[in-house]
Design a protein around this nucleic acid. Structure first.
Length: 267
DNA sequence: ATGTCCCAGTCTCTGGGA
């Protein structure tokens, strides 16, 4: 079974790339983040024509998560219980969580809040959101069935997961509370499935569009796969599909600022 | 590194988010 996660940064803008990538890569299950498309505009028919059942939780132009499967799709969740909204915790939950069971593997897809800066209210929201995620995933993590939570966590787990830690002195994504939130999540019994290095010394998954970051290897590993023991014992390979982040040649669609992470399981 | 990309609304430009 091949499972992948990809922050596509707008499904409407990325459909040509996504359809080509699905055909080339052949994943059985994919979680997508930042679909940035309204619920009723989600291209379920096009994805079905490509062989994928889908479920989507949309939020207009912001956020949005989807799960695609060609091996069945049961037990769908589109809400994270007891999660705060933003800016008021009482606001409706944002579209950042989706989960389903596909061929016996439980998969949760997440788009963790960015945080913006460590002094911004959005940063506290990020930590509260991660705490709600950890509260909810305990039973799934402890289950005997393979389980993984994957997606754009907007946290670099170690200093080696950013191109230059000195550049992050006043930045989110690398602070101790964010990393502790990931440690709390792993403490449920989940392990970081670190993908193979595709080029350069680190398996980055994100490169800012600005400043030629991709070609300078100014990247970050913030798209993560956390699996329970029943999941990780079957992992045969995991890699970052860096090619999917490459700029299009003239006349072809532009890339997302994130690359997919692909995991192969022997089940 | 902030030299880009994406979206919607104010709609052939602007502002916010990442």
């Amino acid at each position: 079974m091949r499972i992948a996660t990809w922050n596509v940064n707008s499904l409407p803008a990325r459909m040509p790339r996504l359809l080509a990538w699905l055909a080339d890569t052949g994943p059985d299950v994919v979680v997508l983040q930042e679909t940035k498309i309204a619920q009723d505009a989600f291209p379920a028919d096009e994805l079905a024509a490509a062989g994928y059942e889908s479920v989507h939780r949309g939020q207009g132009r912001w956020n949005g998560v989807a799960l695609l499967s060609r091996v069945g799709l049961d037990g769908v969740e589109t809400e994270l219980p007891d999660v705060p909204g933003f800016p008021d915790p009482a606001d409706p939950p944002e579209a950042r969580y989706i989960a389903a069971t596909c061929a016996g593997v439980r998969v949760a897809g997440v788009y963790v809040p960015n945080g913006r800066t460590p002094t911004d209210p959005h940063y506290d929201y990020k930590l509260a959101w991660l705490a709600a995620l950890t509260r909810h995933l305990g039973p799934a993590a402890a289950a005997v069935e393979p389980f993984a939570v994957m997606g754009d966590f907007n946290v670099a787990p170690t200093d080696a997961d950013v191109w230059d830690i000195a550049e992050f002195a006043q930045s989110t994504h690398v602070t101790e509370p964010e990393r502790q939130a990931l440690a709390d999540l792993r403490a449920l019994g989940l392990s970081d499935v670190v993908p193979t290095i595709s080029k350069g010394p680190h398996p980055y998954t994100f490169w800012d569009y600005r400043g030629g970051a991709f070609h300078k290897a100014f990247g970050m590993r913030i798209d993560l796969v956390y699996g329970n023991a029943a999941f990780t014992e079957h992992v045969r390979a995991a890699y970052v599909d860096r090619d999917a982040r490459k700029p299009g040649v003239r006349g072809t669609p532009a890339p997302s600022d994130h690359a997919p992470v692909v995991v192969d399981l022997d089940l």
